[in-house]
Simulated assay, not measured.
Amino acid sequence: MENSGDRPIAIIGAGLVGMGWAIVFARAGRKVQVHDASADLLADLPDRLETALADLADHGLIGDPAPIAARITIAGSLAEALRGAVYVQESILERVDVKRALYAEMAPLLAPDAHVGSSSSGIPSSEFTAGLSIAPRCLVAHPVNPPYLLSVVELVPAEWTLPEAVDSVHALMQAVGQHPIRIARELRGFVLNRLQGVLPREAWALYEEGYCSLDDIDATISKGLGPRWAFMGPFETIDLNAPGGIADYAHRLGALYRDIAAERSEHAPWSADLIARADAERRASLPLDKLADRCVWRDQRLMAFAAHKKTQPE
């Protein structure tokens, strides 16, 4: 795959994630063929791409959007999208039966050397590729949305995924400007969502127990922990938070975190009443008809931050 830069990339699924992947590959100079079973999603893809690319250009993250858009073509059929493709990024509905049906349909259409990465957020690829002829060439390549602004991609092989498939997808992701993370074996939720899930679990509990409002919990992250986490992970954060580094931090605060964890040894599901109370509080702050506008605001902030990071050393 590393030496196949003239061959197209196929994107199957033209929703938010699929569109994001199309931008990632086209921005890096690759030809992209996009297909979706939904004619409506395909029909409005050019307009959505135009808006996203214009925003990126406005923030100085790309140059002229036109050549990038020109590299992205809409394929009217699955066969057309896969024709000649050296790599396929699947970004369809997060359901095993739907994915399984697609992979079975793709099997006879793929080039013999093509690999397939799934944007699955938590379903291991073994659940929808088992027994298929293409299974050894398939793995999870889970992005953070939108992938053209957030570069991490989790690469998760099934037990039968060929090592060279992982190596090849890893090299491709690096070549197009993403930051691939290798996960040694399958686990539900992978690494990102397992890390991400810990914080909401505690946030829900603190809210349910009446310690803080939603806004104050959010502010604790956005104005406290979040700014550091934007350029450091948890291990580097604690390493820099004690004079003697990570070992000193563990010695000083390990017992505190052990006691905190012990309080949450059993996690109760979010109750319907708790969800309703949280939803009412959020809707008072942000009416539902303004939610899409706030998503645009989020992406604009991410673009501004990405532009800033380009000027800073790692």
Rank of each mutant, 00 (worst) to 15 (best):
S4R: 09
P8E: 04
I11C: 02
I11D: 00
A14N: 05
V17H: 00
G18W: 00
G20A: 09
A22K: 00
I23S: 10
V24C: 13
F25V: 03
K31N: 14
Q33D: 10
Q33E: 13
V34M: 08
L41T: 07
L42R: 15
D44R: 14
L45V: 12
R48H: 14
R48K: 15
L49N: 01
T51Y: 11
L53E: 06
D64F: 13
P67S: 08
I68A: 03
I68W: 04
A69E: 10
T73N: 00
I74F: 00
A75Q: 02
G76W: 02
L78S: 04
L82D: 05
A85K: 07
V88S: 11
Q89M: 05
S91Y: 00
S91I: 01
S91H: 03
I92E: 02
I92Y: 02
R95T: 03
V96D: 08
V98E: 05
L109A: 00
A111H: 02
H115P: 00
G117M: 05
G117I: 01
S118G: 09
S119K: 04
P124A: 10
S126M: 06
T129M: 10
G131V: 11
L132D: 01
S133T: 13
A135K: 15
R137P: 14
A141C: 10
A141N: 06
P143E: 05
P143N: 08
L149D: 12
S151D: 11
E154T: 11
L155E: 08
T161L: 07
T161N: 03
L162V: 00
V169F: 10
A175Q: 12
Q178S: 07
P180N: 07
I181P: 00
A184W: 12
R185M: 11
R185V: 09
F190L: 09
L192A: 15
N193I: 07
L199V: 15
A203L: 12
W204Y: 15
A205S: 14
E208I: 01
E209W: 02
C212V: 08
D215Q: 14
I217E: 10
A219I: 06
A219M: 09
K223V: 00
K223L: 10
L225G: 03
G226D: 11
R228E: 06
A230G: 12
G233N: 09
F235V: 08
L240A: 15
N241Y: 04
A242S: 14
G244Y: 13
H251F: 06
R252H: 13
A261T: 11
R264S: 14
A268V: 10
A268L: 15
P269Q: 01
A272N: 01
A276Y: 10
A280P: 09
E281I: 07
A284R: 13
C295A: 14
C295G: 12
V296M: 07
R298P: 08
Q300F: 02
F305P: 01
F305C: 01
E314R: 14
